[in-house]
């Protein structure tokens, strides 16, 4: 479950809803009551406001700590630090093509992608055959070190490589594929 939350866009979408729906319910019920049902001043005691305030602030802090602490193990740099030997693949992006040192990869084998840009801003994004984005790396030209990320494919298939930073009038043609074979 936690893997799904942090490794897919839909996981992020669900967490977003978990914050938004309670907010919408509370906000609309209060506004509706005090605007259309009974707009006379509330008779709530001062101490009740104060305890609500602290409960609300406390809840926000706890929610954000939980969401962020749980995400640490999914940060790419943390994953990279925990990976031993990885297959090295270099990527050079230019307007409007990718030069990838090896496009045949294997399931279960960690791959370190080291990517650079030769001319303008590009990105190197890998898209799952189901259309979801696995990751993107923003590539700025003129940097001394390559942008790196380690990824281990878990499913075989044809993965799409795409540039996601707008890079000129043929930006959408900047696309290729990677083949991941089962082990």
């Amino acid at each position: 479950m936690i893997d799904f939350i942090y490794t897919t866009g839909w996981g992020a979408f669900i967490v977003m809803l978990m914050f938004q729906i309670p907010f919408l319910i509370v906000f609309f019920s209060i506004v509706n009551k005090k605007a259309f049902v009974d707009s006379t001043p509330g008779k709530t005691e001062a101490s009740k406001y104060s305890s609500t305030k602290w409960a609300w602030v406390g809840l926000t802090i706890i929610a954000f700590i939980v969401v962020n602490v749980a995400s640490i193990q999914y940060m790419p740099t943390v994953i990279e630090a925990g990976t031993g030997n990885a297959k090295e693949v270099t990527v050079e992006a230019r307007s409007w093509a990718f030069d990838i040192s090896d496009t045949n990869l294997r399931v279960g084998e960690p791959v370190r992608f080291s990517a650079t840009s030769a001319d303008t801003m590009h990105s190197f994004a890998i898209i799952h055959p189901d259309g979801q984005q696995i990751f993107t790396m923003m590539l700025m030209p003129g940097l001394e070190t390559a942008n790196t990320l380690v990824h281990t494919f878990t499913e075989p298939g044809e993965y799409i490589v795409r540039c996601l930073e707008y890079c000129g009038i043929a930006h959408h043609t900047m696309k290729t594929t990677l083949t991941v074979a089962s082990n």
């Binding site: 992020a12 640490i72 979801q132 990320l149």
Partner: peptide, 10 residues
């Protein structure tokens, strides 16, 4: 969030 950003940025 750093982890989600890699999935959603772009």
């Amino acid at each position: 969030n750093v982890a989600w950003n890699f999935k959603l940025h772009g």
